[in-house]
Amino acid sequence: MTNHECTCGENPLVPQICNVIKITDETPDTKTFRVQTLDGKKPFDPMPGQLGMFSLIGVGEGMFSVTAKGEDYLDFAIKRCGMLTDALHEMSVGQQVGVRGAYGNTFPVEACKGKDMLFIGGGIGLAPVRSFIRYAFENREDYGKIDILYGARSAKDLVFKEDLYTNWPAMKDTKVHITVDCDDEELACHVGFVPAYLEELAFKPDNRMVVLCGPPIMIKFCLDSLTKMGFSNDQVITTLEMRMKCGIGKCGRCNIGSKYICLDGPVFTMAELEGLPQEF
């Protein structure tokens, strides 16, 4: 029986120690932490959508999506919203943390090949989506047109600004659509909620897959809009989050029906979610 790919040894519940080598302030409450093993490698090799258990030894562990992987590092974008994340935000470069993973399933990168892609992210929900966006750009020829629609509460809450404004718009056949809920800094972008902007942009459903991630209320209304625009449920992919402790389908708490989100998820198509109890 093969356990996970981590370099920490045989036990999937024991983390490996990593260095925090870079911290990027994304927004006032979100930071991206770049981690690397003590011998200068990436802790594990996740596919887009997979998760990693990130721990501050002595404080606690939390499950986060891996936002990006490099040759020798992994990035985790983490929003401050509790005791652990408060402590993580106090870290400085050189801090040692525990990392274990990769957990969960992946975005269906193969099944999406040859299709136009629409990535929709709201707030910190862009973090998991970003791993797929980066993958699509690394394998640019495999995918058709790429549209990225991203919304945040205000201009200061936009994450990954360098990607949104510089890197991604420069890619071939790619458009980035940014919207903020309220225009407090007179930023030159669209103002309004994501679902309304989505309808305004009037994407065609033909040969297109949608990756949707954000706050539950945004997902709900985006789904309504997508349905109105003619998208079917198996064209829409999302990721779920539940409280997790083990990450390996043992500890029991992240189940929805008989599925464990840490193992069978976090990525589901909307069609798959319809077959599950609505308890998330």
Partner: peptide
């Protein structure tokens, strides 16, 4: 019933991580 929680106990600069029965 096998559900568990993972928590830690720290004292000064050392500690241990443990798992314990949890209840749904």
């Amino acid at each position: 019933c096998y559900c568990f929680d993972i928590e830690g106990k720290e004292c000064g600069n050392e500690g241990y991580k443990f798992r314990c029965w949890d209840s749904c």
